[in-house]
Simulated assay, not measured.
Amino acid sequence: MAQGKGGVPGGPPTQVNKLDNMLGSLQSDLNKLGVQTVAKGVCGACCKPIVGQVVTAMGRTWHPEHFVCTHCQEEIGSRNFFERDGQPYCETDYHNLFSPRCYYCNGPILDKVVTALDRTWHPEHFFCAQCGSFFGPEGFHEKDGKAFCRKDYFDMFAPKCGGCARAILENYISALNSLWHPECFVCRECFTPFVNGSFFEHDGQPYCEVHYHERRGSLCSGCQKPITGRCITAMSKKFHPEHFVCAFCLKQLNKGTFKEQNDKPYCHGCFVKLFS
């Protein structure tokens, strides 16, 4: 059974074959009239001679209607195109298929590119994951595959000072199960640095000796110095034994042999003389 060229058996020829037949007839008619037609090359797509318009690209010649995007098959014409593996692609398809993609928006990157964290980014889409700011000369810090500016990185992930609760960036002191800026590891009451690193702990905080005993209620009410040995408790206060004295004659008192007046202790004799 006969089959039309490039078509179904017995069916009409395709549009491409019609065009080829018309061009062949035209060339034959021109030859009969004595007009010599010279082929301008062989089409890189259909491998047939080109008599009319010709497209020259990629070191080859093409019928204009055959110079199409390898992906979408749209005629390229005078538009920009890209070559890959010897095949032409329109600009849109080339970027969609082969250009690096931005990790943030997943769009193709057509111009400048930032390469970081083993990924590619549009420059305008590479910013701090916390505050959205672009990175300055100090660059960025990485955590769990995300980029952070220096401030947010240390605010979020650096250890915090037991004194001021701000991030510790450089030198630190380790004490009381916490880390401290050196300038923050001082008495929590008077803010005095500790001599030779010696300090006292109360409720998880460092104190100098005086304020430690003040917080513990172990300062002598007579001399206002810490009580480290024997102690007398009287009038809801604490005293060195030698400092628990009569407020008038300054004679040392025993805990059970004093009189109290206006929150002061007196020996029996002075109390009788002063208040009887």
Rank of each mutant, 00 (worst) to 15 (best):
A57C: 06
H66V: 06
T56P: 05
E75V: 13
K259V: 01
L19A: 09
T120G: 00
Y89H: 01
D203Q: 03
Q87F: 11
L30Y: 12
D93I: 00
H202V: 01
N262I: 06
G7T: 15
G10D: 14
G162P: 02
G86Y: 08
C149M: 08
D85V: 03
G145L: 12
S133Q: 12
P226W: 05
P265N: 01
V272A: 07
A175C: 09
V68E: 00
G222T: 09
K151S: 06
A175F: 04
C190S: 09
I50M: 10
C131W: 05
V245S: 12
N106Q: 10
H71D: 06
C102E: 00
N262A: 11
Q205S: 04
V8L: 14
K146P: 02
C231S: 13
F157A: 03
A158H: 04
G222K: 05
A147V: 01
K264A: 05
C47H: 15
C90G: 01
A167E: 15
D203R: 08
F200E: 14
A175M: 10
L23H: 03
G7H: 13
L274F: 15
I227V: 11
F157N: 00
V186G: 14
A39H: 02
F82D: 03
W180R: 02
Q252A: 13
R119D: 02
A45W: 02
S178N: 15
V38W: 04
M22K: 12
I232A: 04
F134K: 13
Y94P: 00
C69N: 08
R84M: 14
I227F: 05
G222W: 09
S25R: 07
E83D: 07
G145D: 11
E209L: 08
H122E: 00
H211Q: 05
P108K: 01
G162S: 06
E183L: 10
E65G: 10
D263A: 08
Q130V: 01
H211G: 12
N196S: 15
R79Q: 14
E83C: 09
L253H: 05
A165S: 12
C190T: 06
L179Y: 10
V113E: 03
C246A: 11
H141W: 05
H95T: 06
P182F: 10
S221W: 11
G256R: 02
P108E: 05
T192E: 15
S198R: 15
Q205L: 11
L274R: 15
K143I: 14
K40Y: 07
N21Q: 12
G204N: 02
A129R: 00
M1E: 10
A39S: 12
L33W: 09
L274W: 12
G217S: 03
V210M: 07
C208D: 15
M235V: 07
Q261E: 00
L169H: 04
F126G: 02
M58A: 05
C161K: 08
C69G: 00
H240S: 00
Y153E: 04
Q252V: 13
M235S: 07
K151I: 13
T233P: 02
M235R: 02
G269W: 06
N96F: 06
